[in-house]
Amino acid sequence: MFMIFGIPGPLLFGQLLLGLINGAFYALLSLGLAVIFGLLNIINFAHGSLFMMGAFAAWILLEYLGIGYWPALILSPLIIGAFGLLLEKTVISRLYKLDHLYGLLLTFGLSLIIEGLFRNYYGSSGMPYQIPPALSGATDLGFMFMPNYRGWVVVVAVVVCFATWLVIEKTRLGATLRAATENAPMVQAFGVNVPRLVTLTYAAGVALAAFAGVLAAPIYSVNPNMGSNFIIVVFAVVVIGGMGSILGSILTGFMLGVVEGLTKVFYPQGSATVIFVVMVIVLLMRPAGLFGKAA
């Protein structure tokens, strides 16, 4: 067995792969946040709760209606996306004219309420959700045992991230969206219904969070705290990538997953902190983030 920095090679490769898998979740979650921030200028602190709601929607669909994983992968984002639509229409849209901080406070408050309600009804230790039969089992890669489901998560995450980036950067719809962010009155003058566009964008960001929630349900137990465990890290990812930069948050998500994975081998106690150390360093050197445009 060969060694790299005193760690057996196969173990290190395994850790790199695990880092990529976790990075896929970071990328998917930060993508939704980046879309919402980039196009709406709202710091959506409720993102973690919406991610949790996505997982719970999948669990509820299975438990009460017998609807399995595959339909839930579509249905749950639709349901939670509709909830996001409602949220945007009723409360969030009232804050666009105010400072960022108000949006942050409102969405933070919303996330406390949502988590509290779920905790009250479902307790704190979570609900079991099985891996779908088609993806259970694992593949022996020689240097590690790779669960098929985790492989699926990475593939789906990459596809969804790339598709979102394509839509926003390369299509006419994306161009309209970006134009609306730059100069809303002008776009409206061209006959585009900007408020509706904004509402739908928020709903799409929320749907992405719910989609990640369904993906996460079989790996982590479905519990009311699952969102708050992720949200702080995901915010760090968005900040490091550059607020609002879509490509930035995708690449940073994967990259930080790997950094975290390596820390778990060399200094496990620091693995919860390393992302914030990176954040501090990046902010000192490039205040706009790795991929952000300087204001």
């Binding site: 850790q15 695990l18 880092g19 982590y220 465990n229 992720f230 496990p268 106690q269 693995s271 919860a272």
Partner: peptide, 11 residues
């Protein structure tokens, strides 16, 4: 392992 805040133990 860092407590609290660790969700992925696979590593």
């Amino acid at each position: 392992t860092p407590f609290p805040g660790t969700t992925d133990f696979s590593s």
